[in-house]
Design a protein around this nucleic acid. Sequence first.
DNA 1: CCCTATAAGGTACTCGAAGTACCGTAAATT
DNA 2: AATTTACGGTACTTCGAGTACCTTATAGGG
Lengths: 194, 194
Amino acid sequence: MTRRRGAELEQAIIQAAADELVKSGYPALTMDKVANRAGTNKNAIYRRWPNRAALGVAAYRQLVDAELVAPDTGELRGDVLALLHQLNRDLSSPKADILRGLLSGIGDEPELLAQLHEQFGDGGAGVWLTVLGRAVGRGEARPAALRPRVATVAITLLRNEYVTRGLTSVDDGVIEEIVDEVYLPLVAGRQPAS
Amino acid sequence: MTRRRGAELEQAIIQAAADELVKSGYPALTMDKVANRAGTNKNAIYRRWPNRAALGVAAYRQLVDAELVAPDTGELRGDVLALLHQLNRDLSSPKADILRGLLSGIGDEPELLAQLHEQFGDGGAGVWLTVLGRAVGRGEARPAALRPRVATVAITLLRNEYVTRGLTSVDDGVIEEIVDEVYLPLVAGRQPAS
DNA sequence: CCCTATAAGGTACTCGAAGTACCGTAAATT
DNA sequence: AATTTACGGTACTTCGAGTACCTTATAGGG
Protein backbone atom coordinates (compact mmCIF):
# COMPACT_ATOMS: atom_id res chain seq x y z
CA MET A 1 0.00 0.00 0.00
CA THR A 2 2.18 2.78 -1.30
CA ARG A 3 1.22 5.99 0.36
CA ARG A 4 1.20 9.03 -1.94
CA ARG A 5 2.89 12.21 -0.79
CA GLY A 6 3.61 15.76 -1.85
CA ALA A 7 2.94 16.79 -5.41
CA GLU A 8 1.52 13.43 -6.40
CA LEU A 9 -1.14 13.55 -3.71
CA GLU A 10 -1.79 17.20 -4.36
CA GLN A 11 -2.49 16.53 -8.00
CA ALA A 12 -4.82 13.68 -7.09
CA ILE A 13 -6.78 16.00 -4.81
CA ILE A 14 -7.07 18.72 -7.44
CA GLN A 15 -8.19 16.20 -10.01
CA ALA A 16 -10.78 14.80 -7.62
CA ALA A 17 -12.06 18.29 -6.88
CA ALA A 18 -12.25 19.12 -10.57
CA ASP A 19 -14.20 15.95 -11.20
CA GLU A 20 -16.62 16.83 -8.45
CA LEU A 21 -17.01 20.33 -9.87
CA VAL A 22 -17.92 18.95 -13.26
CA LYS A 23 -20.24 16.38 -11.79
CA SER A 24 -22.09 18.46 -9.24
CA GLY A 25 -20.98 22.08 -9.39
CA TYR A 26 -19.40 24.25 -6.76
CA PRO A 27 -22.26 24.44 -4.26
CA ALA A 28 -22.18 20.66 -3.98
CA LEU A 29 -18.42 20.47 -3.70
CA THR A 30 -17.87 19.05 -0.25
CA MET A 31 -14.53 18.40 1.30
CA ASP A 32 -15.58 14.94 2.38
CA LYS A 33 -16.52 13.94 -1.13
CA VAL A 34 -13.29 15.29 -2.57
CA ALA A 35 -11.25 13.50 0.06
CA ASN A 36 -13.13 10.30 -0.54
CA ARG A 37 -12.80 10.48 -4.32
CA ALA A 38 -9.11 11.18 -4.01
CA GLY A 39 -8.71 8.25 -1.66
CA THR A 40 -7.50 10.38 1.20
CA ASN A 41 -9.03 12.48 3.95
CA LYS A 42 -9.80 16.07 4.76
CA ASN A 43 -6.61 16.62 6.66
CA ALA A 44 -4.52 16.24 3.54
CA ILE A 45 -6.67 18.87 1.86
CA TYR A 46 -6.63 21.40 4.66
CA ARG A 47 -2.88 21.10 4.87
CA ARG A 48 -2.76 22.56 1.34
CA TRP A 49 -5.72 24.91 1.02
CA PRO A 50 -7.17 27.01 3.81
CA ASN A 51 -10.79 26.47 2.87
CA ARG A 52 -13.26 25.15 0.36
CA ALA A 53 -13.18 28.25 -1.81
CA ALA A 54 -9.44 28.06 -2.33
CA LEU A 55 -9.70 24.44 -3.34
CA GLY A 56 -12.49 25.32 -5.73
CA VAL A 57 -10.39 27.93 -7.48
CA ALA A 58 -7.47 25.56 -7.78
CA ALA A 59 -9.70 22.90 -9.25
CA TYR A 60 -11.29 25.33 -11.66
CA ARG A 61 -7.87 26.24 -12.95
CA GLN A 62 -7.39 22.58 -13.78
CA LEU A 63 -10.53 22.71 -15.91
CA VAL A 64 -9.84 25.76 -18.02
CA ASP A 65 -6.18 25.58 -18.77
CA ALA A 66 -6.97 24.65 -22.35
CA GLU A 67 -4.88 26.76 -24.64
CA LEU A 68 -6.69 29.46 -26.52
CA VAL A 69 -5.33 29.86 -30.02
CA ALA A 70 -5.92 32.90 -32.18
CA PRO A 71 -7.79 31.85 -35.33
CA ASP A 72 -6.82 33.35 -38.69
CA THR A 73 -9.62 33.09 -41.21
CA GLY A 74 -8.49 36.10 -43.23
CA GLU A 75 -11.29 38.41 -42.15
CA LEU A 76 -12.15 39.89 -38.79
CA ARG A 77 -15.72 38.66 -38.63
CA GLY A 78 -14.67 35.08 -39.18
CA ASP A 79 -11.94 35.32 -36.56
CA VAL A 80 -14.27 36.83 -33.98
CA LEU A 81 -17.00 34.29 -34.60
CA ALA A 82 -14.49 31.48 -34.37
CA LEU A 83 -13.16 32.78 -31.08
CA LEU A 84 -16.59 33.24 -29.59
CA HIS A 85 -17.76 29.82 -30.69
CA GLN A 86 -14.63 28.31 -29.27
CA LEU A 87 -15.19 30.06 -25.97
CA ASN A 88 -18.88 29.26 -26.06
CA ARG A 89 -18.07 25.59 -26.31
CA ASP A 90 -15.55 26.03 -23.58
CA LEU A 91 -17.91 27.80 -21.25
CA SER A 92 -20.84 25.55 -21.97
CA SER A 93 -22.28 23.61 -19.16
CA PRO A 94 -21.07 22.79 -16.65
CA LYS A 95 -18.25 25.29 -16.61
CA ALA A 96 -20.50 28.31 -16.59
CA ASP A 97 -22.32 26.99 -13.55
CA ILE A 98 -19.05 26.32 -11.85
CA LEU A 99 -17.77 29.79 -12.60
CA ARG A 100 -20.97 31.41 -11.40
CA GLY A 101 -20.83 29.35 -8.25
CA LEU A 102 -17.25 30.28 -7.58
CA LEU A 103 -17.80 33.95 -8.22
CA SER A 104 -19.97 34.16 -5.17
CA GLY A 105 -18.69 31.59 -2.77
CA ILE A 106 -15.58 33.73 -2.83
CA GLY A 107 -17.05 37.19 -2.51
CA ASP A 108 -15.29 37.85 0.76
CA GLU A 109 -11.85 36.85 -0.47
CA PRO A 110 -10.59 39.37 -3.02
CA GLU A 111 -7.32 37.49 -3.49
CA LEU A 112 -9.06 34.37 -4.71
CA LEU A 113 -11.33 36.44 -6.88
CA ALA A 114 -8.31 38.03 -8.49
CA GLN A 115 -6.83 34.61 -9.15
CA LEU A 116 -10.08 33.51 -10.70
CA HIS A 117 -10.21 36.62 -12.82
CA GLU A 118 -6.92 35.73 -14.46
CA GLN A 119 -8.36 32.39 -15.46
CA PHE A 120 -10.87 33.79 -17.86
CA GLY A 121 -10.68 37.57 -18.00
CA ASP A 122 -7.82 39.67 -19.17
CA GLY A 123 -5.80 36.53 -19.52
CA GLY A 124 -7.45 36.20 -22.90
CA ALA A 125 -6.80 39.78 -23.93
CA GLY A 126 -3.70 38.75 -25.79
CA VAL A 127 -5.59 36.60 -28.23
CA TRP A 128 -8.10 39.33 -28.91
CA LEU A 129 -5.42 41.90 -29.49
CA THR A 130 -3.69 39.56 -31.90
CA VAL A 131 -6.82 39.04 -33.96
CA LEU A 132 -7.66 42.70 -33.86
CA GLY A 133 -4.14 43.70 -34.78
CA ARG A 134 -4.31 41.66 -37.96
CA ALA A 135 -7.63 43.30 -38.77
CA VAL A 136 -6.07 46.72 -38.36
CA GLY A 137 -3.37 45.67 -40.79
CA ARG A 138 -6.06 44.77 -43.32
CA GLY A 139 -7.86 48.04 -42.77
CA GLU A 140 -10.85 46.31 -41.22
CA ALA A 141 -10.45 47.97 -37.85
CA ARG A 142 -9.30 51.33 -36.64
CA PRO A 143 -5.97 51.44 -34.76
CA ALA A 144 -7.59 53.20 -31.81
CA ALA A 145 -9.49 50.00 -31.09
CA LEU A 146 -6.28 48.24 -30.11
CA ARG A 147 -6.95 48.64 -26.41
CA PRO A 148 -7.64 45.78 -24.00
CA ARG A 149 -11.01 47.09 -22.92
CA VAL A 150 -12.16 47.42 -26.50
CA ALA A 151 -10.66 44.21 -27.78
CA THR A 152 -12.31 42.07 -25.12
CA VAL A 153 -15.79 43.55 -25.34
CA ALA A 154 -17.18 40.57 -27.22
CA ILE A 155 -16.06 37.96 -24.76
CA THR A 156 -17.14 40.15 -21.87
CA LEU A 157 -20.65 40.37 -23.28
CA LEU A 158 -20.74 36.66 -23.93
CA ARG A 159 -19.57 35.81 -20.45
CA ASN A 160 -22.12 38.24 -19.10
CA GLU A 161 -24.85 36.16 -20.68
CA TYR A 162 -23.65 33.12 -18.82
CA VAL A 163 -23.10 34.72 -15.50
CA THR A 164 -26.15 36.91 -15.14
CA ARG A 165 -28.62 34.64 -16.83
CA GLY A 166 -28.68 31.03 -15.71
CA LEU A 167 -27.79 29.68 -19.10
CA THR A 168 -25.84 26.53 -19.73
CA SER A 169 -25.27 27.43 -23.36
CA VAL A 170 -25.70 30.58 -25.37
CA ASP A 171 -27.60 30.55 -28.63
CA ASP A 172 -25.67 31.15 -31.85
CA GLY A 173 -28.05 34.00 -32.61
CA VAL A 174 -26.88 35.84 -29.55
CA ILE A 175 -23.29 35.44 -30.62
CA GLU A 176 -24.00 36.85 -34.05
CA GLU A 177 -25.88 39.72 -32.47
CA ILE A 178 -22.91 40.52 -30.30
CA VAL A 179 -20.59 40.41 -33.29
CA ASP A 180 -22.71 42.26 -35.83
CA GLU A 181 -24.47 44.78 -33.62
CA VAL A 182 -21.71 45.56 -31.19
CA TYR A 183 -18.26 44.30 -31.89
CA LEU A 184 -17.79 44.95 -35.58
CA PRO A 185 -19.39 48.42 -35.48
CA LEU A 186 -17.27 49.22 -32.44
CA VAL A 187 -13.92 48.43 -34.00
CA ALA A 188 -14.77 49.22 -37.60
CA GLY A 189 -12.86 51.93 -39.44
CA ARG A 190 -16.09 53.08 -41.02
CA GLN A 191 -19.71 52.12 -40.50
CA PRO A 192 -21.05 49.10 -42.39
CA ALA A 193 -23.59 49.63 -45.15
CA SER A 194 -26.56 48.51 -43.05
CA MET B 1 -49.67 42.20 22.06
CA THR B 2 -51.07 42.64 18.60
CA ARG B 3 -49.91 39.83 16.44
CA ARG B 4 -49.00 40.80 12.87
CA ARG B 5 -50.39 38.78 10.01
CA GLY B 6 -50.40 38.51 6.23
CA ALA B 7 -48.96 41.36 4.23
CA GLU B 8 -47.86 43.34 7.25
CA LEU B 9 -45.75 40.52 8.59
CA GLU B 10 -44.48 39.69 5.15
CA GLN B 11 -43.24 43.22 4.65
CA ALA B 12 -41.55 43.15 8.04
CA ILE B 13 -39.71 39.97 7.08
CA ILE B 14 -38.59 41.37 3.73
CA GLN B 15 -37.37 44.53 5.39
CA ALA B 16 -35.49 42.57 8.00
CA ALA B 17 -33.88 40.43 5.31
CA ALA B 18 -32.93 43.52 3.31
CA ASP B 19 -31.35 45.05 6.40
CA GLU B 20 -29.37 41.91 6.99
CA LEU B 21 -28.24 41.87 3.38
CA VAL B 22 -26.92 45.41 3.66
CA LYS B 23 -25.29 44.72 6.97
CA SER B 24 -23.64 41.38 6.28
CA GLY B 25 -24.20 40.30 2.68
CA TYR B 26 -25.89 37.27 1.26
CA PRO B 27 -23.54 34.56 2.50
CA ALA B 28 -24.20 35.69 6.06
CA LEU B 29 -27.94 35.95 5.60
CA THR B 30 -29.30 33.36 8.00
CA MET B 31 -32.92 32.53 8.47
CA ASP B 32 -32.58 32.70 12.22
CA LYS B 33 -31.19 36.22 12.14
CA VAL B 34 -33.87 37.42 9.77
CA ALA B 35 -36.59 35.89 11.90
CA ASN B 36 -35.12 37.40 15.00
CA ARG B 37 -34.73 40.85 13.50
CA ALA B 38 -38.29 40.74 12.21
CA GLY B 39 -39.54 39.71 15.63
CA THR B 40 -40.92 36.43 14.39
CA ASN B 41 -39.62 32.93 13.72
CA LYS B 42 -38.48 30.78 10.87
CA ASN B 43 -41.85 29.18 10.38
CA ALA B 44 -43.38 32.44 9.24
CA ILE B 45 -40.60 32.76 6.67
CA TYR B 46 -40.78 29.25 5.32
CA ARG B 47 -44.53 29.61 4.93
CA ARG B 48 -43.80 32.34 2.36
CA TRP B 49 -40.52 31.42 0.68
CA PRO B 50 -39.32 27.91 -0.02
CA ASN B 51 -35.71 28.55 0.87
CA ARG B 52 -33.05 31.07 1.70
CA ALA B 53 -32.30 31.95 -1.91
CA ALA B 54 -35.88 32.94 -2.64
CA LEU B 55 -35.95 35.16 0.41
CA GLY B 56 -32.67 36.71 -0.67
CA VAL B 57 -34.03 37.63 -4.09
CA ALA B 58 -37.17 39.12 -2.58
CA ALA B 59 -35.10 41.19 -0.18
CA TYR B 60 -32.78 42.36 -2.94
CA ARG B 61 -35.75 43.62 -4.89
CA GLN B 62 -36.58 45.78 -1.89
CA LEU B 63 -33.12 47.31 -2.11
CA VAL B 64 -32.96 48.22 -5.77
CA ASP B 65 -36.41 49.47 -6.58
CA ALA B 66 -35.10 53.01 -6.70
CA GLU B 67 -36.41 54.70 -9.80
CA LEU B 68 -33.92 55.25 -12.54
CA VAL B 69 -34.54 58.53 -14.31
CA ALA B 70 -33.15 59.35 -17.73
CA PRO B 71 -30.87 62.39 -17.45
CA ASP B 72 -31.00 65.08 -20.13
CA THR B 73 -27.85 67.15 -20.22
CA GLY B 74 -28.17 68.06 -23.88
CA GLU B 75 -25.36 65.86 -25.13
CA LEU B 76 -24.95 62.12 -25.21
CA ARG B 77 -21.66 61.97 -23.36
CA GLY B 78 -23.05 63.89 -20.43
CA ASP B 79 -26.15 61.73 -20.28
CA VAL B 80 -24.17 58.50 -20.37
CA LEU B 81 -21.72 59.64 -17.73
CA ALA B 82 -24.58 60.76 -15.52
CA LEU B 83 -26.32 57.42 -15.88
CA LEU B 84 -23.19 55.44 -15.16
CA HIS B 85 -22.29 57.52 -12.16
CA GLN B 86 -25.80 57.16 -10.86
CA LEU B 87 -25.63 53.41 -11.29
CA ASN B 88 -22.14 53.32 -9.89
CA ARG B 89 -23.35 54.97 -6.72
CA ASP B 90 -26.28 52.61 -6.69
CA LEU B 91 -24.15 49.51 -7.13
CA SER B 92 -21.49 50.62 -4.74
CA SER B 93 -20.89 48.55 -1.72
CA PRO B 94 -22.68 46.71 -0.38
CA LYS B 95 -25.08 46.12 -3.23
CA ALA B 96 -22.48 44.73 -5.57
CA ASP B 97 -21.45 42.17 -2.99
CA ILE B 98 -25.04 41.25 -2.43
CA LEU B 99 -25.65 40.85 -6.12
CA ARG B 100 -22.55 38.75 -6.59
CA GLY B 101 -23.56 36.59 -3.67
CA LEU B 102 -27.04 36.09 -4.98
CA LEU B 103 -25.87 35.26 -8.47
CA SER B 104 -24.27 32.12 -7.21
CA GLY B 105 -26.30 30.97 -4.28
CA ILE B 106 -29.02 30.65 -6.85
CA GLY B 107 -27.21 28.93 -9.66
CA ASP B 108 -29.40 25.86 -9.50
CA GLU B 109 -32.69 27.76 -9.66
CA PRO B 110 -33.10 29.37 -13.06
CA GLU B 111 -36.46 30.88 -12.12
CA LEU B 112 -34.98 32.91 -9.32
CA LEU B 113 -32.10 33.92 -11.54
CA ALA B 114 -34.54 35.19 -14.12
CA GLN B 115 -36.33 37.21 -11.47
CA LEU B 116 -33.04 38.65 -10.37
CA HIS B 117 -32.09 39.49 -13.91
CA GLU B 118 -35.13 41.71 -14.29
CA GLN B 119 -34.03 43.67 -11.25
CA PHE B 120 -30.94 45.08 -12.86
CA GLY B 121 -30.57 43.92 -16.42
CA ASP B 122 -32.86 44.64 -19.29
CA GLY B 123 -35.18 46.33 -16.88
CA GLY B 124 -32.98 49.36 -17.38
CA ALA B 125 -32.95 49.11 -21.16
CA GLY B 126 -35.77 51.61 -21.40
CA VAL B 127 -33.75 54.40 -19.88
CA TRP B 128 -30.81 53.73 -22.15
CA LEU B 129 -32.98 53.67 -25.23
CA THR B 130 -34.52 56.97 -24.19
CA VAL B 131 -31.16 58.65 -23.81
CA LEU B 132 -29.86 57.13 -27.01
CA GLY B 133 -33.02 58.07 -28.89
CA ARG B 134 -32.50 61.72 -28.06
CA ALA B 135 -28.90 61.44 -29.20
CA VAL B 136 -30.05 60.02 -32.52
CA GLY B 137 -32.38 62.99 -32.86
CA ARG B 138 -29.41 65.32 -32.39
CA GLY B 139 -27.32 63.40 -34.90
CA GLU B 140 -24.92 62.20 -32.20
CA ALA B 141 -25.70 58.55 -32.69
CA ARG B 142 -26.64 56.37 -35.61
CA PRO B 143 -30.20 55.01 -35.71
CA ALA B 144 -28.95 51.45 -36.03
CA ALA B 145 -27.66 51.69 -32.47
CA LEU B 146 -31.19 51.84 -31.11
CA ARG B 147 -31.18 48.20 -30.10
CA PRO B 148 -31.32 46.90 -26.53
CA ARG B 149 -28.07 45.00 -26.76
CA VAL B 150 -26.24 48.04 -28.06
CA ALA B 151 -27.88 50.58 -25.80
CA THR B 152 -27.04 48.67 -22.62
CA VAL B 153 -23.43 47.89 -23.41
CA ALA B 154 -22.11 50.52 -21.02
CA ILE B 155 -23.99 49.33 -17.99
CA THR B 156 -23.21 45.73 -18.86
CA LEU B 157 -19.50 46.51 -18.88
CA LEU B 158 -19.77 48.43 -15.64
CA ARG B 159 -21.66 45.65 -13.92
CA ASN B 160 -19.11 43.22 -15.24
CA GLU B 161 -16.43 45.09 -13.32
CA TYR B 162 -18.36 44.60 -10.12
CA VAL B 163 -19.31 41.01 -10.60
CA THR B 164 -16.12 39.51 -11.94
CA ARG B 165 -13.70 41.56 -9.94
CA GLY B 166 -14.33 41.83 -6.23
CA LEU B 167 -14.74 45.55 -6.29
CA THR B 168 -16.94 47.51 -3.98
CA SER B 169 -16.69 50.62 -6.09
CA VAL B 170 -15.45 51.32 -9.57
CA ASP B 171 -13.01 54.08 -10.29
CA ASP B 172 -14.22 57.07 -12.29
CA GLY B 173 -11.39 56.48 -14.71
CA VAL B 174 -12.84 53.12 -15.62
CA ILE B 175 -16.20 54.72 -16.29
CA GLU B 176 -14.66 57.28 -18.59
CA GLU B 177 -12.76 54.56 -20.36
CA ILE B 178 -15.96 52.64 -20.95
CA VAL B 179 -17.65 55.74 -22.29
CA ASP B 180 -14.88 57.16 -24.45
CA GLU B 181 -13.27 53.98 -25.69
CA VAL B 182 -16.31 51.81 -26.12
CA TYR B 183 -19.71 53.35 -25.83
CA LEU B 184 -19.39 56.58 -27.78
CA PRO B 185 -17.39 55.04 -30.63
CA LEU B 186 -19.92 52.22 -30.77
CA VAL B 187 -23.00 54.36 -31.18
CA ALA B 188 -21.42 57.29 -32.98
CA GLY B 189 -22.56 58.20 -36.48
CA ARG B 190 -18.97 58.74 -37.50
CA GLN B 191 -15.67 58.08 -35.80
CA PRO B 192 -14.34 60.72 -33.42
CA ALA B 193 -11.24 62.66 -34.37
CA SER B 194 -8.91 60.75 -32.05
C1' DC C 1 21.03 0.45 7.95
C1' DC C 2 18.79 2.55 11.63
C1' DC C 3 16.68 7.16 13.56
C1' DT C 4 14.10 10.88 13.36
C1' DA C 5 11.31 14.36 11.28
C1' DT C 6 7.58 14.91 8.35
C1' DA C 7 3.39 13.99 6.27
C1' DA C 8 -0.13 10.65 5.42
C1' DG C 9 -4.46 7.97 7.04
C1' DG C 10 -8.26 7.27 10.37
C1' DT C 11 -11.65 8.77 13.27
C1' DA C 12 -14.16 11.48 16.02
C1' DC C 13 -15.42 15.73 17.33
C1' DT C 14 -17.49 20.87 17.53
C1' DC C 15 -20.16 24.30 15.54
C1' DG C 16 -23.29 26.73 12.70
C1' DA C 17 -27.13 26.97 9.84
C1' DA C 18 -30.94 25.02 6.76
C1' DG C 19 -35.03 23.09 6.99
C1' DT C 20 -38.87 20.36 9.67
C1' DA C 21 -42.21 19.10 13.32
C1' DC C 22 -45.45 20.13 16.91
C1' DC C 23 -48.00 22.53 19.83
C1' DG C 24 -50.29 26.27 22.11
C1' DT C 25 -52.56 30.64 21.05
C1' DA C 26 -54.18 34.90 18.83
C1' DA C 27 -56.94 36.67 15.20
C1' DA C 28 -60.01 36.53 11.39
C1' DT C 29 -64.25 34.18 9.54
C1' DT C 30 -68.88 32.14 9.91
C1' DA D 1 -69.66 31.37 20.22
C1' DA D 2 -67.43 27.94 17.19
C1' DT D 3 -64.15 27.06 13.86
C1' DT D 4 -60.50 27.70 10.84
C1' DT D 5 -56.29 29.88 9.79
C1' DA D 6 -51.86 31.65 10.68
C1' DC D 7 -48.40 33.27 14.11
C1' DG D 8 -45.04 32.43 18.08
C1' DG D 9 -42.09 29.30 20.60
C1' DT D 10 -39.21 25.63 20.88
C1' DA D 11 -36.99 21.65 19.93
C1' DC D 12 -35.32 18.69 16.65
C1' DT D 13 -32.78 16.45 12.48
C1' DT D 14 -29.37 16.77 9.01
C1' DC D 15 -25.44 18.11 6.76
C1' DG D 16 -21.10 20.05 5.89
C1' DA D 17 -17.01 23.10 7.25
C1' DG D 18 -13.30 23.06 9.88
C1' DT D 19 -10.42 21.09 14.02
C1' DA D 20 -8.06 17.76 17.11
C1' DC D 21 -5.45 13.94 18.00
C1' DC D 22 -3.47 9.77 17.31
C1' DT D 23 -1.33 6.05 14.59
C1' DT D 24 1.52 4.74 10.76
C1' DA D 25 4.20 5.02 6.59
C1' DT D 26 7.90 7.33 4.04
C1' DA D 27 12.02 10.23 3.09
C1' DG D 28 16.37 11.69 4.11
C1' DG D 29 20.33 12.17 7.10
C1' DG D 30 23.58 10.14 9.99
